[in-house]
Design a protein around this nucleic acid. Structure first.
Lengths: 181, 181
DNA sequence: TAGACGTAGA
DNA sequence: TCTACGTCTA
C-alpha cells in the first residue's frame, strides 16, 4: 500500500543544496524536503500540541503574487483552502479561508521564528518545445508577516504570507539544530 | 515535467512473470504492464484508426463482480466512466456508460481476439495489522463476451466484460508476436 | 471519509 | 481542457 516514506523536519535537509532540481512532487517527499504528496504547506506538530510549517511548495496553482517573479528573495504565498484561481474559473461557491492547518502552521512559524523551506515550480516556458516544469529548492525563509485580503473576483478572504530568504540560513540552521536536538 | 515513461504494447511484457507483485500504479507504467497512471483500461491505437485494449487494472473501485473472487480464471470487469460505486454513494447524477474509449477498445479486442493483460489489486486483509494492498499481474486473457446491464441502484447502463485466462498464453504470445512484428 | 498548489492521456 | 479503478494526510 503505502510506498512513499515521508519525513518531517524543520530546517535544512542533509545532502540537499539550494538550487537542487526535482521533476515530480513525490521526489520532494522522498528526499525529505516536503512531506506532503500534494498539499502546498507541509506541517509538523510541536510538543505542546501546536503546529509549525516545515516547507511550502509554490506551484503557481494558487494566487501567489510572486509566482512568476524573477527574484526569489521574497515570496508572497497564498494560504491553503478554497483555491481562488480554480474556484473562480469553475464558478464554484467559495468560502473564506480559515486560519487552520497549514495556514495556522505558517502563522506559528512566524511567531516562533522557525525557518521554512521554500520550493518553487518553474515552467520551462523559455523553450517553446518544452512544455514541462521543474521544482527548485530555494532555501530557508522566515515568515515575515501575514495578512488577510478580500479578493475582488470571489469576494472572499484569503490569507497571504510574506516569506523572506535567510541569507545566513546555512549557519542559522546549524546553530538551530544544536539547540533543538 | 513528465517524469513517467509509459509504453504501449499488446501481449506479454519481457521480464514480467504471472504473479509478479507491485505496490504502486506508477510501477505498472514503468515496467510496461499498463500505460495509464490512473485509468483502468489501457489502450493502443491500431493502424487503421481503431483502438485496442492492452491491459486492465481491477482495483475494485468499480463494480466488478469478481473483484473479491478467489479465482482469477474468469474476470467480470465493469466498463469505465460514470463510476457506479462512487456515483451512487455520493448521490451524483449518473449517465449511461458509452461504448467509447476503453470500453470500445475492450470490445475491439474481443472481435479481433487480441490478448489483454490483467492486473488485480489485492487488499492485505488477512493480516489485520496491514491495511495495505498490492497489484498482481494475472497474465493474458481473452475478452469472451460483453453485455449491458441496468443497475438497480442508479437506473443507468453499465458495460460488463467477461475475460477468460488463456492457459496457453505464453506460447500464444510468442506466436502472436512472430506474426505481428 | 473527504480533500489536497498531483499527473498523464484522451 | 477535462477526466481518470490515484495516493497521501488530516
Amino acid at each position: 500500500g503505502k510506498w512513499l516514506n515521508t519525513t518531517k523536519q524543520i530546517g535544512c535537509v542533509a545532502g540537499i543544496e539550494v538550487g537542487d532540481e526535482f521533476h515530480w512532487r513525490g521526489e520532494l517527499c522522498i528526499v525529505g524536503l516536503h512531506n506532503d504528496f500534494q498539499r502546498g504547506i507541509g506541517c509538523i506538530p510541536s510538543l505542546d500540541g501546536r503546529i509549525w510549517a516545515t516547507s511550502i511548495v509554490d506551484s503557481g496553482r494558487y494566487d501567489s503574487a510572486t509566482t512568476n517573479s524573477a527574484s526569489s528573495d521574497e515570496i508572497t504565498y497564498c494560504g491553503e483552502g478554497e483555491n481562488p484561481v480554480f474556484g473562480v474559473k469553475k464558478k464554484k461557491k467559495l468560502k473564506d479561508q480559515k486560519l487552520v492547518g497549514g495556514n495556522l502552521a505558517l502563522m506559528n512559524s512566524m511567531v516562533d521564528r522557525k525557518p521554512v523551506r521554500v520550493i518553487r515550480r518553474y515552467n520551462h516556458s523559455r523553450n517553446a518545445n518544452d512544455s514541462g516544469y521543474k521544482f527548485i529548492y530555494e532555501g530557508l525563509y522566515r515568515v515575515a508577516k501575514y495578512w488577510k485580503e478580500i479578493r475582488a473576483d470571489s469576494g472572499t478572504c484569503v490569507y497571504k504570507f510574506k516569506l523572506v530568504r535567510m541569507e545566513d540560513h546555512q549557519q542559522y540552521d546549524s546553530e538551530w539544530k544544536k539547540k533543538n536536538v
